[in-house]
Amino acid sequence: MNSIYDIQQLLKRYGTFIYTGDRLGDLNLMEMEIDELYQMKFIKIQEYQVAKLLLVREKNRIARQKGANNA
């Protein structure tokens, strides 16, 4: 798993399609779904950790962009 797209593909395997038009909102929903899949033991800890890391990185990237645009 190397990208947010890969996380979307993982979620699709379990019947979850997320697209609200709000990137940050989508990332938060993906994170909640990943948490739930892990808690129910559908995904391995390695998949869970990588997905969480990618989601945090993307959220931070968006936050930096918004900060730069407001400056």
Rank of each mutant, 00 (worst) to 15 (best):
44 K>L: 02
56 V>D: 12
53 L>T: 12
40 M>T: 11
56 V>M: 07
33 E>A: 11
20 T>Y: 15
47 E>D: 08
53 L>Q: 07
44 K>A: 04
4 I>E: 07
38 Y>P: 06
53 L>Y: 10
28 N>T: 14
55 L>R: 01
40 M>P: 00
27 L>W: 13
8 Q>R: 14
48 Y>N: 07
52 K>N: 07
41 K>I: 05
20 T>N: 14
26 D>K: 12
13 R>N: 14
18 I>V: 11
60 N>R: 10
23 R>M: 14
57 R>W: 05
38 Y>L: 10
61 R>E: 15
65 Q>V: 03
71 A>K: 01
22 D>Y: 15
50 V>N: 11
22 D>G: 11
54 L>G: 02
54 L>A: 04
26 D>S: 12
48 Y>W: 11
29 L>N: 06
69 N>F: 01
40 M>A: 07
18 I>S: 01
2 N>V: 11
45 I>E: 13
50 V>G: 05
62 I>D: 09
2 N>P: 03
37 L>S: 09
48 Y>S: 03
56 V>L: 12
41 K>H: 12
8 Q>V: 04
61 R>G: 03
50 V>Q: 14
27 L>I: 11
19 Y>C: 13
52 K>Q: 15
40 M>W: 01
53 L>S: 08
38 Y>C: 08
19 Y>V: 09
28 N>M: 14
9 Q>F: 02
71 A>P: 00
70 N>W: 00
53 L>F: 13
42 F>T: 02
53 L>W: 08
60 N>V: 02
43 I>Y: 03
46 Q>F: 09
23 R>E: 15
41 K>N: 15
68 A>P: 02
46 Q>E: 15
13 R>P: 02
17 F>K: 12
15 G>M: 07
36 E>R: 05
23 R>Y: 14
20 T>P: 14
32 M>R: 14
27 L>H: 13
25 G>N: 14
37 L>Q: 05
17 F>M: 15
41 K>T: 11
1 M>F: 07
7 I>G: 00
11 L>I: 05
68 A>S: 09
36 E>L: 08
67 G>I: 05
16 T>N: 11
60 N>E: 11
51 A>D: 01
11 L>M: 08
66 K>I: 13
69 N>G: 09
24 L>M: 15
44 K>T: 01
66 K>V: 09
42 F>I: 02
11 L>K: 04
61 R>P: 01
6 D>W: 00
51 A>K: 02
60 N>D: 05
59 K>D: 08
42 F>V: 03
26 D>C: 12
18 I>R: 00
36 E>D: 09
52 K>G: 06
15 G>W: 04
30 M>D: 06
56 V>T: 10
26 D>N: 15
65 Q>A: 04
33 E>D: 12
3 S>R: 00
12 K>T: 06
16 T>A: 14
14 Y>H: 15
12 K>P: 05
37 L>I: 04
11 L>N: 07
